[in-house]
Amino acid sequence: MKELVLILIALLTASFLVNVPRSDEDWFLYMGELRMYEMSAEADTLKARSLIFARSWVDRWLAGVNSTACEELPPPPNGSLFVQLLREDMMSKGFSLTGDLHYSIDESREGDSSDQAFGGYCRDGGIKVAASSRLTIRDDLLGIKARRYFDVGACQPTAYFLIREVLTGLRHRTIEIVRKAFSSEENVTAAPQEMREELTSLVRYLRRNLTDEGISLRLTYATEFAGEEVVIAFKAVVFDEEANIIRDGGLRRGFSCIREWGIRVRGS
């Protein structure tokens, strides 16, 4: 008898604890609420997910051009691909996604704002990504929709634009220096010396400006006399120690560009 009473007390207590809902509650109401929460999870993470996608895109590209000549411009992330991937995923959940996402790439400036979901910071000559979204998620069965319009900017801290600009400027300047040094026909023997002094001065000037940015520069060259011609082969290595790139699930520090070029001039 005592056991029976105990069981009844336990059942009664549990029934209060679990608060069994009333039987007349509308199934559609529950379903609508359920879908609303799901839609909200999809919609309210769109901005963060678009930035995660952009970071992944830019970093994958940067990892691919690391230790190369760095002559290309960074391609903007493919917004259509992002929308297509989400559309396929949402379709399997019974949602439809419409609208578009557009990305653009530009050079960043120190002081620009960067969204924390992207995980970077803005510095001079870095990569700035801007995302502009006009996306709408619909549940046609229940007739509910979530519209998310946003314009957001973020920065990849690798100073790619700055390095690219330095290397391009360095190449042009070395061509000018070499041509000037070897332009004088009367004093050809003094030309290599003059060229060396000019190049040393140029590299010193560039290093002074780049050191504050955490960037180092090394310029080497080899002079070869081929008959009446002089061939000077240059190699410049620029290393950005502040760069950080996400690759294969890890954060890699450092990014370098190596560019080689040759200049041919008449020696006498």
Binding site: L34, Y37, E38, A41, A48, I52, A117, G119, G249
Partner: peptide, 27 residues
């Protein structure tokens, strides 16, 4: 369904917070 809604609401809310707070760290 009443419980499912409550639990799903919590799951969705936690999911939003997790994705928005973690951001790039998910990579």
């Amino acid at each position: 369904l009443g419980w499912q809604v409550r639990w799903k609401a919590r799951a969705c809310s936690d999911l939003k917070r997790t994705v928005n707070e973690l951001g790039y760290r998910i990579l």
